[in-house]
Amino acid sequence: NMVHPNVICDGCNGPVVGTRYKCSVCPDYDLCSVCEGKGLHRGHTKLAFPSP
Rank of each mutant, 00 (worst) to 15 (best):
G39W: 03
C35F: 00
G11Y: 10
S33E: 12
K46C: 13
D30R: 06
P5G: 06
E36I: 02
F49A: 10
C32Q: 00
Y21W: 08
C12E: 01
M2C: 04
V25C: 05
C35E: 03
C12L: 00
N6I: 04
H4D: 14
V16K: 02
L31A: 03
D28M: 07
K22S: 07
V3Q: 04
R20N: 06
H4Y: 08
C26H: 03
N1Q: 04
G39Y: 07
C9L: 00
L47H: 13
L31K: 01
P15W: 10
N13L: 07
Y29V: 02
G18W: 04
V16F: 03
R42A: 14
C9N: 00
P52R: 04
G43P: 07
V16P: 01
P50H: 11
C9D: 00
K22C: 05
M2E: 00
P52H: 05
T45K: 12
S24Y: 06
N13P: 01
F49P: 06
L31W: 03
S51Y: 06
C9F: 00
G18P: 03
V17A: 08
T19M: 10
C35W: 00
F49I: 15
C9G: 01
Y21C: 02
N1H: 05
T45D: 12
L40H: 08
R20Y: 14
V16A: 04
C12S: 01
T45S: 10
K46E: 04
G37F: 08
C32N: 00
C23W: 00
F49S: 13
S33R: 07
C26P: 00
P27W: 04
N13E: 09
Y29S: 05
V25M: 09
G11Q: 13
M2I: 11
R42W: 06
C32W: 00
G14Q: 10
C12P: 00
N1D: 11
D28L: 05
S33G: 09
L47P: 05
K38E: 11
F49D: 13
G11P: 01
V34H: 09
C23E: 02
N1V: 04
V7D: 06
T19C: 11
H41F: 03
K38L: 05
G11M: 07
V7Y: 12
C9M: 00
T19Y: 07
M2R: 05
V34F: 07
H44F: 02
H44Y: 01
S51A: 13
C35K: 02
P27Q: 14
G37L: 11
N6Y: 06
S33Q: 13
R20W: 11
A48E: 15
Y21H: 06
D28Y: 06
V25K: 09
E36W: 05
P5D: 06
C12V: 00
K22M: 06
N6T: 04
P27N: 11
V7P: 06
C12G: 01
Y29C: 02
H41R: 01
E36Q: 07
V16S: 03
G18D: 08
R42T: 15
V25D: 10
L31H: 06
I8G: 07
P27S: 10
V16I: 14
R20T: 09
P15F: 05
C26T: 01
G14P: 00
C23D: 03
N6G: 13
E36C: 05
L47A: 12
C32I: 00
V7I: 11
H44E: 02
L40D: 07
C23I: 01
V17N: 14
V25P: 03
H4C: 13
G14D: 08
Y21G: 02
H41G: 04
K46G: 04
P5H: 04
S24C: 06
F49T: 14
V3M: 09
H4N: 15
V7T: 06
K22L: 04
I8C: 13
G39M: 08
S24T: 14
R42K: 12
D10N: 13
H41S: 02
C12R: 00
L47Y: 07
S51W: 05
C9P: 02
D28A: 08
M2A: 00
E36T: 04
K38A: 07
E36N: 09
C26F: 01
C23V: 02
T45M: 08
L31R: 02
C9S: 01
L31F: 06
S33M: 08
K22H: 13
Y21E: 01
G39E: 12
K22V: 06
V3K: 15
R42E: 15
V25S: 10
L47D: 13
L31N: 06
E36K: 04
Y21S: 03
S33K: 11
N13A: 07
V34I: 15
K38W: 03
N6F: 03
P27C: 03
C35N: 01
D10E: 11
K22P: 02
P27H: 08
N13C: 07
Y29A: 06
C12A: 01
G37T: 13
M2Y: 00
P50V: 07
R42G: 14
P50Y: 04
D30Q: 12
V7S: 09
L31Y: 04
M2H: 01
P27E: 07
R20F: 10
P50G: 08
I8R: 13
E36D: 10
P52F: 03
V25R: 06
C32T: 01
I8P: 05
S24A: 13
K46F: 12
L31P: 01
S51P: 15
P50Q: 10
S24V: 06
D30S: 11
C35G: 01
A48R: 11
N6R: 10
K22N: 09
G43Q: 15
H41N: 02
D30Y: 15
H44M: 02
V25A: 05
S33I: 09
R42Q: 15
V3D: 08
N1S: 06
C26L: 01
D10G: 15
C35S: 01
G14C: 08
S51M: 12
N13K: 15
C9K: 02
P27G: 05
G43A: 15
V3G: 09
G11C: 08
P5I: 15
G14F: 04
T19L: 07
G37I: 05
P27T: 13
P27Y: 05
K46W: 08
G18N: 05
C26A: 02
S33N: 12
P27R: 13
L47I: 15
P50R: 07
T19V: 12
M2P: 06
G37K: 14
V25W: 04
P27D: 05
C35D: 01
P52T: 08
K46D: 03
P52K: 05
A48L: 12
H41W: 02
S51Q: 15
A48P: 11
S51E: 12
G39I: 02
A48V: 14
V25E: 06
S51D: 13
E36F: 07
G43N: 13
G39C: 04
S24I: 05
V34G: 11
V34T: 11
H44I: 02
R20V: 11
E36R: 04
P50W: 05
K22A: 05
D10T: 15
A48Q: 12
S33P: 08
H4Q: 09
P27L: 07
V3N: 14
A48T: 12
M2F: 05
T45L: 07
D30M: 11
P15I: 07
R20Q: 08
T19R: 08
L31E: 04
K38N: 11
L40P: 04
H4K: 13
L31S: 04
C9V: 01
G18Y: 10
E36H: 08
P5M: 08
H41Y: 00
C32L: 00
H4E: 14
